[in-house]
Computed example of a mutant assay.
Amino acid sequence: MSKNWNVQMSITELDRVTMCEARLTGKNGVTLVGEGSARANPADENVPAIGDELAAARALSDLAHQLLHTAVMDIEAHTHETVRGMEV
């Protein structure tokens, strides 16, 4: 059996701030949204691609933590025991 989960990332820039929203859809129709941002130092050269990369990485990291938290909650709901050893 094959399953597809899709992540759509939207990146916006305003002045020297880059924001990214990563939306995961697929798990029983539930959508999780991760957010990340990057702010360029005014003294640094303006390289928008770096802001995109940082904001996207932070949004995906946020999304990964939410997904791990969801998995822990699901495990605990099924086992009725506290999950140990997983960073959430």
Rank of each mutant, 00 (worst) to 15 (best):
6 N>V: 04
55 A>E: 00
38 A>V: 08
73 M>D: 13
21 E>M: 09
83 V>F: 02
36 G>H: 05
13 E>H: 08
1 M>S: 12
61 S>K: 01
31 T>D: 13
87 E>K: 14
13 E>M: 11
36 G>K: 01
87 E>D: 11
77 A>S: 05
79 T>G: 06
35 E>V: 15
84 R>F: 06
62 D>S: 07
85 G>F: 07
28 N>R: 11
29 G>V: 09
53 E>L: 12
84 R>C: 03
84 R>A: 12
26 G>F: 11
42 P>M: 12
12 T>E: 13
31 T>W: 07
78 H>N: 01
7 V>L: 09
66 Q>V: 02
19 M>K: 14
4 N>K: 08
62 D>Q: 00
3 K>C: 03
52 D>H: 04
68 L>W: 06
45 E>I: 14
40 A>T: 07
82 T>K: 02
13 E>N: 01
49 A>F: 05
40 A>V: 12
19 M>I: 15
33 V>I: 15
49 A>T: 11
76 E>G: 12
82 T>C: 00
68 L>A: 05
49 A>R: 11
17 V>M: 07
49 A>V: 04
71 A>F: 03
10 S>P: 10
56 A>Q: 03
76 E>F: 01
29 G>I: 00
7 V>Q: 12
43 A>V: 15
70 T>R: 04
15 D>Q: 07
8 Q>H: 14
12 T>Y: 04
26 G>E: 06
79 T>F: 03
66 Q>R: 11
40 A>K: 14
45 E>H: 09
23 R>H: 03
30 V>Q: 15
76 E>S: 04
77 A>F: 03
78 H>P: 00
2 S>P: 04
9 M>N: 13
8 Q>K: 10
59 A>F: 03
26 G>A: 10
21 E>Q: 12
69 H>L: 04
50 I>S: 01
43 A>K: 14
66 Q>C: 10
53 E>I: 10
18 T>S: 13
69 H>M: 05
52 D>A: 06
80 H>Q: 10
